[in-house]
Write a protein that binds this DNA or RNA. Structure first.
Length: 1128
RNA sequence: GCCGGGAUGGCGGAAUUGGUAGACGCGCACGACUCAAAAUCGUGUAUCGUGAGAUGUGAGGGUUCGAUUCCCUCUCCCGGCACCA
């Protein structure tokens, strides 16, 4: 072959391969291991850019090499084809999004083929195929049925331009990831998936995975686990009332369970009276008996809170109906269901109760009404919602799962019975220093307090104004105004610090976030920066409860490891000038510690006296006046040069002021050790170089906080404990250990057309009802236009006929859910479908999945680290818990690929005018060149961005042309000169490809070619070997040259060449000669030479340099170097 | 602020994980071929120095016979999180 016509060659072989079905992958092959190589499937945007080449053509090198190395390689592809761009294009050009998408897919397929990729197209998966999204819907329903999906009205990120809800991941710096418009907060009823239930496992299961550290760290940061404690702060009201709680238990109960007893004792602690009558005939309750018993048990007046749980809820309403005077409040907890409602489970007491409720009477008797409902109770929740509406009551939806009003520690209802605020803290050790409480504007208690039915706040309107203003702020505004903290005190209430028993003020402030922790924090101004700022602004008390412990680990006085510490009481004296704004700066010369006067307290001496004495001794000043103590003791661990011991010094920080400049003599020994100067405040700031000095200095200068670890003080029985111990002990006594996460639940509703319809039906009676499995898939309906309505309704609502359905439960009139699923749902399981793409009965056959899962290597973009990669891990775990997949983790190994920049080093973009069109380069230089250039540009498995260098591509093309020309050198007999190098090349290329270091593999091929061009002689077998090594990189050219060399089978079905370790050794090898570690020469020795021979040869080679010098030591590293250590 | 990753010629990068720093490619310079240019081929190409030689892997220190590689301190760049209690 003389010239290299890449166009002809590449088209020819692409056709040929397809005709032969060369890349069809069987599920298993006898004697071969399976290898699942996954790349992120593309969104069919319509144009293929260099990034696609980088994403698909490079893993293809690995796929081909591994096939040759005897693996059964699955290298599948598909299209993630739902999503906004199609819909936007449809709106703009009045197209059908499906047509637009399918057109793009067709076009992109051609382009992907033109790369010479070995994808198995027979396994192609498209998310828009109803045969695929049937299973997306099915999985969603499986999760729903297992309590992983819930519907909730939440403040969501709303993009006003795209008119859709965005996931947190799609909001970047408060702006829409797609269109850059500012995202606003909107209350909407959304479908959520409980990814937060998996937060711990999503972190912990990362540990054993073969993933780059940075990806693991990113995911951990994103999930943001922090471990701390939850502590309850009781509230007291200025218009404090003692109530009588009358609590009515439910069916088959006696009101004597630990739960009721506990409730009673808790409420009694706050001075309330609690009556829990045991209602008669509890196994076969009758209305009249029960109501009469309740009425006879006690009296009801305006101080009575009537509480009823389950059947007791119904009884409570009946009791209220019969009362003649008002009561303080009626609380209905998970009331027994009205049999008229769908989903009612037949109960024996049904007919013994009158289910008609006199709503108006109840309203009149109980002006303050609350209905507690458990959102997880699918059938009862709609009834309770209706009940709350009828009663015009506050509806409180709890998150508790199993026992419908039990939270993990106490009934959620208690929060509404007993005024308590629960905070989350990671610094329980500072609880005694909590001098105020802050609630987020979104805190449920605030909502309750602002309700018109309540009157606990004396400045209600002020609070209301603040809360409403805070809610209007976007996330972005809250972020940008973070420096200036604002808040409003809730007047009329106080909280009690459970540790000190003291009353502390309660604030609402938007520096506390509603969705994190419990939405409330304790303010510890002495030990937290933010709290300190807030307390200073609002004049809140600052109480130190932690004595700092400073450990010196660097500098002249760094502690010596393993040595014991000697305790000593000392003072630290900050001395102010008598007339100027200056301070006495002391540099301790032996260790270069810079700070203030300091020294030990002698026996029978108090701290102030010691201070005065030290000032006199170190500086000579006589008339120091004691001003004040600067807060708590500061402990410092350092190495004392004076005592030659590790010291644990307890400093009493003191502030003095000189009365005049009277100065006596300083003893010469002291003078030689201290350098004393006067410094301004500013100079002092930079002068101080030890943490204990700095803490004292900050205390002298007004407000300060200490946020580090220390020893507890002012903390009662916990005094003297370290932070670590105190944290545990205090958390245990006053609260409970608890973890909190930044990760929020995954909101999957999208108010757009081009997505998977959410397979739910809304029935006015039954509430949300899943579409029965046999009716799946719920296909996307045709609509006239795709414009979102803007009100938050999806365009699917326009398909009126489609929307109208029968309720699968009650067969009454119902409507379909019109929102579609987030596209990240579609891509959360596509890799499973590759294993069995055409299955109509299951999303994939279990055995077939086992052939290929988990994925051996997943290659993709760094941008998906906290999105797709996290979602799909969650999804897989959820499937795992349902027994639908075998592994807890889907991807064994993951690598993030880099980005190809424009020639100018900027990100490729039309506006920069630096976009490289791969089609143009392919037409000019060929697909093989483009593949190889991208492979050569740098290591594939490291993230660093490579600029496209147009000259570099030409260089690679030159290499391929030189390969073509080298056919002239092929001869019958082998070239001995090349033998060793070829062995070396087989080894290096093989190893480097496996390690994804395509760049060095190619460089080795180039080294070999350089040698071949010098030798001008290569044997036929040697040539064939070279072509085999080239095949994964330049599949078309290698195939062509293979065929030219006379083979009639495809090179891509050939096995990878093996090498012989023995042949790798050269007969002679160079040994570097060093003298004192510096290279001074080189000598060639036989590769099997003994140490002695090598040393002798080396000694001879540098004899001239060694002359007259004494050799102290000789180091011989076989095969590498000889180092002579000589006297200088 | 917290966490992670990185820094090697004019450029992309290499170095068998402690053993001759700068492989391979690009660029550049000179030469050959050519009337000329392009293409191609050859030679050179870390810095300073005519040279012997010296210096050199972000900066400084340490361990070692020997450090791009290990340890400490610092600077800068990139990425993730961020009023997260």
């Amino acid at each position: 072959m003389k010239s290299y016509d890449h166009n002809k060659i590449e088209k020819k072989w692409q056709k040929e391969w397809e005709k032969k079905g060369l890349y069809k992958t069987p599920d298993t092959v006898k004697g071969k291991d399976n290898f699942n190589l996954l790349v992120e499937f593309p969104y069919p945007s319509g144009n293929l850019h260099v990034g696609h080449w980088y994403a698909f053509a490079l893993p293809d090198i690995l796929a081909r090499a591994m096939r040759m190395q005897g693996k059964n390689v699955l290298y599948p592809i598909g299209f993630d084809a739902f999503g906004l761009p199609a819909e936007n294009a449809a709106i703009k050009n009045k197209l059908n999004p499906r047509k637009w998408t399918e057109g793009n897919i067709k076009y992109m397929k051609e382009q992907i083929r033109s790369m010479g990729t070995s994808f198995d197209w027979s396994r192609e998966v498209q998310t828009i195929d109803p045969g695929y999204y049937k299973w997306t819907q099915w999985m969603f329903l499986q999760f729903y049925k297992n309590g992983l999906v819930y519907r909730k009205e939440t403040a969501v990120n709303w993009c006003p331009k795209d008119k859709t809800v965005l996931a947190n991941e799609q909001v970047v710096d408060g702006k829409c990831e797609r269109c850059d418009s500012e995202v606003i907060q909107k209350q909407m009823l959304q479908w959520n998936i409980k990814i937060t239930d998996y937060a711990d496992r999503l972190i912990d299961d990362l540990e054993p995975l073969d993933w780059p550290k940075e990806i693991k760290e990113s995911q951990k940061n994103w999930i943001g686990r922090s471990e701390g404690a939850e502590i309850d702060f009781p509230l007291i009201f200025a218009n404090d009332k003692k109530y009588k709680f009358v609590m009515l238990h439910g069916y088959k109960s006696k009101g004597e369970s630990p739960r009721w007893k506990w409730l009673k004792s808790e409420l009694e602690k706050f001075g309330h009276e609690v009556v829990i009558p045991t209602l008669p005939n509890t196994e076969h309750p009758k209305e009249n008996e029960q109501v009469a018993a309740a009425l006879n048990a006690t009296t009801y007046d305006e101080n009575t809170v009537l509480v009823g749980h389950s059947l007791g809820g119904l009884v409570a309403m009946k009791v209220a109906e019969r009362l003649n005077n008002k009561i303080a409040r009626l609380v209905i907890v998970a009331s027994a269901m009205n049999p008229a409602y769908p989903g009612y489970v037949e109960r024996p007491f049904r007919k013994d109760f009158d289910w008609d409720i006199d709503v108006e009477k109840i309203k009149a008797i109980a002006p303050n009404r609350v209905v507690l409902s458990d959102v997880q109770e699918i059938t009862r929740a709609p009834y309770l919602k209706d009940l709350a509406k009828q009663l015009d009551a506050q509806l409180v939806e709890t998150k508790a799962v199993k026992e419908h009003f039990m939270a993990d520690k106490e009934p959620d209802m208690l929060m509404w019975l007993r005024p308590t605020i629960r905070v989350f803290t990671t610094r329980a050790d500072t609880l005694f220093g909590a001098t105020y409480l802050v609630l987020a504007p979104e805190h449920p208690w605030i909502m309750l307090a602002l309700d018109e039915k309540h009157n606990v706040l004396s400045n209600k309107s002020e609070v209301k104004t603040y809360v409403e203003a805070a809610k209007k702020k976007t996330e972005l505004e809250r972020q940008t105004n973070q420096k200036e903290k604002t808040g409003v005190e809730l007047k009329g209430i106080k909280a009690i610090n459970p540790a000190t028993g003291k009353e502390i003020p309660v604030y609402v402030a938007d520096y506390v976030l509603g969705h994190y922790g419990t939405g409330a924090v304790m303010g510890v101004p002495a030990h937290d920066e933010r709290d300190n700022e807030f307390a200073n602004k609002y004049g809140i008390a600052i109480v130190e409860t932690l004595e700092p412990v400073v450990v010196v680990t660097k500098g002249g006085d760094a502690i010596k490891a393993g040595q014991p510490f000697t305790d000593r009481n000392s003072i630290l004296a900050i001395v102010k000038h008598w007339s100027e704004e200056k301070y006495l700066a002391v540099k301790y010369l032996p260790t270069d510690v810079k700070g203030f006067v300091s020294g030990g307290i002698e026996q029978n001496e108090d701290a102030v006296a010691a201070g005065k004495r030290e000032i006199r001794e170190e500086t000579g000043y006589v008339h120091a006046k004691f001003i004040r103590k600067l807060g708590s003791t500061i402990h410092c661990k350092y190495f004392s040069d004076n005592y030659q011991k590790n010291m644990l010094v307890h400093f009493a920080p003191l502030l003095f002021e000189l009365e005049d400049d009277t100065r006596g003599d300083v003893e010469p020994h002291e003078a030689s050790r201290h350098e004393v100067t006067w410094m301004t405040e500013k100079e002092m700031d930079t002068f101080i170089n030890r943490e204990d000095m700095r803490i004292a200095w900050q205390r002298a200068n007004g407000s300060s906080f200490y946020g580090g670890d220390g020893i507890l003080a002012n903390s009662g029985p916990f005094d003297g404990m370290t932070t670590e111990k105190g944290e545990k002990a205090i958390a245990q006594k006053f609260g409970s250990a608890k973890k909190t996460y930044k990760l929020r639940d995954w909101i999957v509703s999208r108010q757009r057309y081009w997505g998977v319809p959410i397979p739910m039906i809304h029935c006015p009676k039954c509430g949300a009802v899943p579409v029965p499995d046999k009716e799946l898939p719920v296909k996307l309906p045709e609509v006239k236009d795709y414009l979102p309505e803007g009100s938050g309704k999806s365009p699917l609502a326009k398909a009126k006929k489609w929307v109208q359905v029968k309720c699968p439960q009650c067969k009454g009139k119902a409507e379909r859910e019109t929102d579609t699923l987030d596209t990240f749902v579609d891509s959360s399981w596509y890799f499973l479908r590759y294993t069995d793409p055409k299955n109509k009965k299951k999303f994939a056959d279990a055995k077939k999945m086992q052939n290929w899962m988990p994925v051996d290597l997943y290659s993709g973009g760094a941008e998906h680290t906290t999105m797709h990669l996290l979602y799909s891990r969650f999804w897989h775990k959820a499937l795992f818990d349902l027994g639908l997949v075998k592994d807890a983790e889907p991807y064994k190994r993951r690598m993030n690929r880099s980005i190809i920049l424009g020639p100018d080093g900027q990100k490729m973009s039309k506006s920069h005018g630096n976009v490289i069109d791969p089609d143009e380069v392919v037409a000019r230089l060929g697909a093989d060149t483009v593949r190889m250039y991208l492979a050569f540009i740098g290591p594939y498995n490291e993230v660093s961005n490579y600029p496209w260098n147009p000259d570099g591509v030409v260089g690679v093309r030159r290499f391929l042309e030189r390969i073509v020309r080298a056919t002239e050198f092929v001869q019958d007999d082998a070239s001995e000169l090349l033998t060793t190098e070829l062995q070396h090349t087989i080894k290096k290329v093989g190893n480097d490809v496996k390690a994804l270091k395509f760049n060095t593999a190619i460089s080795q091929l180039m080294i070999f070619l350089n040698l071949l061009e010098k030798t001008k002689h290569i044997g036929r077998t040697q040539w064939a070997t070279l072509l085999l090594l080239l095949a994964p990189f330049a599949p078309h050219l290698a195939e062509e040259l293979w065929s030219v060399a006379g083979h009639d089978t495809s090179i891509h079905l050939e096995p990878w060449p093996s090498y012989d370790e023995k042949l790798l050794l050269e007969k002679e090898m160079p040994i570097a000669i060093q003298i004192n570690g510096k290279t001074r020469g080189e000598v060639f020795v036989a590769s099997d030479a003994t140490k002695e021979t090598v040393e002798a040869a080396a000694r001879e080679a540098v004899a001239a340099r060694l002359e007259g010098k004494k050799i102290l030591r000789t180091i011989v590293v076989p095969g590498r170097l000889v180092n002579f250590v000589v006297e200088e």
